[in-house]
Amino acid sequence: MDVLRYVAFSADPAGGNPAGVVLDAAGADEPAMLAVAAEAGYSETAFVVPRTDGGLDVRYFSPLAEVPFCGHATIATAVAYAERFGPGELAFHTRAGLVRVGTSVGPDGRLAAELVSVPPKSAPIGAAELAELLGALRWSAADLDPALPPRAAYAGAWHPVIAAGSRDRLARLDYDMDVLGALMARLDWTTVDLVWRESATVFHARNPFPPGGVVEDPATGAAAAAFGGYLRELGLVVPPVTLTVHQGDDLGRPSVITVTVPPYPDSGIAVLGTAVALGG
Rank of each mutant, 00 (worst) to 15 (best):
V271P: 03
V259S: 00
F203V: 12
V238Q: 14
A226R: 01
D250F: 11
H204N: 09
T244D: 10
G228R: 01
P211G: 12
V256G: 04
A219N: 10
H246I: 05
A205M: 15
A226M: 07
P262D: 15
P254A: 08
F209I: 06
V271G: 06
D249R: 05
F203Q: 05
P211W: 08
V215W: 09
S255Y: 06
G273A: 13
A224W: 01
P240G: 04
V256M: 11
V237F: 10
Y230P: 09
V245G: 00
A270D: 02
V241S: 02
A270S: 15
D217S: 09
V256H: 07
P218I: 10
P239G: 06
V202G: 07
V215G: 07
T242G: 08
H204Y: 13
A270L: 13
F227P: 00
P239A: 12
P239W: 03
G248M: 03
G212N: 09
A270K: 13
T220V: 14
L234C: 08
A219R: 07
T260H: 13
G235E: 14
P263G: 13
L243F: 07
V202M: 08
G221Q: 05
L243D: 04
R232W: 03
P211F: 10
P218C: 11
T244F: 05
T220E: 07
E233G: 12
F203L: 15
V214D: 00
V261E: 00
S255W: 06
A225H: 01
V259R: 00
A205P: 08
V245L: 14
Y264V: 13
V238F: 08
H246P: 02
S267W: 12
A205Q: 15
G252E: 05
T260M: 06
G228M: 04
G252I: 09
R253E: 02
N207C: 14
P239S: 09
Y264A: 15
L243P: 02
V214M: 08
Y230N: 11
Y230E: 12
F203A: 09
T258M: 05
V256I: 14
D250M: 05
S267C: 10
G229D: 04
D249K: 00
V214Q: 03
T258G: 04
G212W: 04
T220F: 08
P240C: 05
A219L: 10
V259L: 01
A225I: 01
R232Y: 05
V259F: 02
P262T: 09
P210E: 13
R253T: 04
V241Q: 07
A225Q: 01
G248A: 08
V202Q: 14
Y264S: 14
R253C: 02
R206E: 06
I269M: 02
T244K: 12
D217W: 06
P240I: 03
G212I: 08
L272G: 00
S255T: 10
F203Y: 15
N207V: 03
V241Y: 01
P263V: 03
G235T: 14
P218R: 09
G229F: 03
A226P: 03
V202I: 15
G235F: 12
T260A: 14
I269T: 00
L236S: 11
T242N: 06
A225V: 02
V271R: 06
A226W: 01
G252L: 06
A205T: 14
H246W: 11
T258K: 09
Y230K: 08
